[in-house]
């Protein structure tokens, strides 16, 4: 069953169109990776779902289980945000409010939906513990600066999933973390998504991240989608020259070390 259906989505900033008619769908409970270089329009596409950027103007269709979001009223969008679609950003340092306790921020999505403080607190602590924060009940009233980067990103994930959304949009959730922590956070995201039957739209420029995580991969370039395929198929038999180029740019242990990686210029030349 399709959860998120994006049809012919165009996004412009003023006169400049940056996403030119994208089609994309995410099935319920599926993990889809949206891949591309910086500036390919992948973040803009994903963020168009929640319409948090007031400067962007949208056309086309974004529907969540049949509910059309493009042109929806502010109140409709607000009821979608958090409770049906959660969001995780790249940098956990700037994603958390520095003057509020992490507990307050985790409880917020529940509190604004009328859940009692006491219950929200219990659920928040349980979730934080599930996400691997040790001593969750004691650390609940700490401030963001008292946490490390990886722990902060767990807090951000807790905020995004506490109201049990059907879809989580994770915009480069591990890019700002160091490599060891990256894998932990991705695994955790994977586990939580499976446990809750939550679909994930993972935005990344890192194909290495995609392989173990996603069911489907969507490759974007210059504001257009160039290839959509199940993850195994994409890695085994990439169709589009650009995808081949991208895969060639990933460093691998089993490749002849004397051979140079494919450069962006070479990808550009092949893909046209």
């Amino acid at each position: 069953m399709t959860l998120l259906e994006i049809r012919d989505l165009k996004v412009s900033y003023g006169e400049r169109e940056v996403v030119h008619g994208v089609n994309l769908s995410v099935g319920a409970g599926c993990r889809t990776a949206l891949v591309g270089e910086s500036g390919s329009g992948k973040s803009v596409t994903a963020r168009a779902v929640l319409q948090l950027d007031v400067a962007a103007s949208l056309s086309g269709s974004v529907s969540l289980k049949g509910q059309e979001l493009v042109g929806a009223k502010a109140s409709e969008l607000r009821s979608v945000r958090g409770s049906r679609v959660g969001l995780v950003f790249q940098d956990p340092l700037t994603s958390l409010n520095p003057v509020m306790t992490i507990g307050w921020q985790i409880m917020q999505p529940l509190v604004i939906r009328g859940v009692k403080k006491k219950e929200a607190r219990e659920r928040g602590i349980a979730l934080l513990a599930r996400l691997g924060v040790k001593d969750a009940s004691r650390r609940f009233d700490d401030y963001p600066h008292q946490f490390s980067g990886g722990m902060r990103q767990r807090v951000v994930i807790a905020i995004a999933v506490i109201a049990e959304p059907e879809l989580l949009i994770a915009d480069e959730p591990t890019t700002a973390l160091d490599v060891r922590v990256q894998a932990q956070v991705l695994d955790l995201l994977h586990e939580v998504a499976v446990e809750r039957g939550m679909a994930v739209l993972l935005i990344t420029h890192d194909l290495g991240v995609v392989a173990g995580f996603a069911d489907d991969v969507v490759v974007m370039r210059h504001g257009r989608i160039v290839e959509t395929a199940p993850v195994a198929q994409l890695f085994a038999d990439p169709q589009h020259p650009y995808t081949k180029g991208l895969l060639g740019a990933v460093p691998r242990l089993d490749r002849d070390p004397a051979q140079r990686l494919v450069s962006v210029e070479e990808i550009e030349a092949v893909a046209g």
């Binding site: 929640l50 948090l52 607000r78 009821s79 979608v80 945000r81 958090g82 409770s83 959660g86 969001l87 950003f89 940098d91 700037t94 994603s95 958390l96 409010n97 520095p98 003057v99 509020m100 917020q108 999505p109 604004i112 939906r113 951000v156 905020i159 995004a160 109201a163």
Partner: peptide, 29 residues
Amino acid sequence: DADYVTLARATGAGELRVVVRHALRNALV
């Protein structure tokens, strides 16, 4: 303009809450 304000909106917080509890609270310093 901070990410935490965008994320607060992404959790479904209303504008008044976003402006006062998140943005103004930080501007107090």
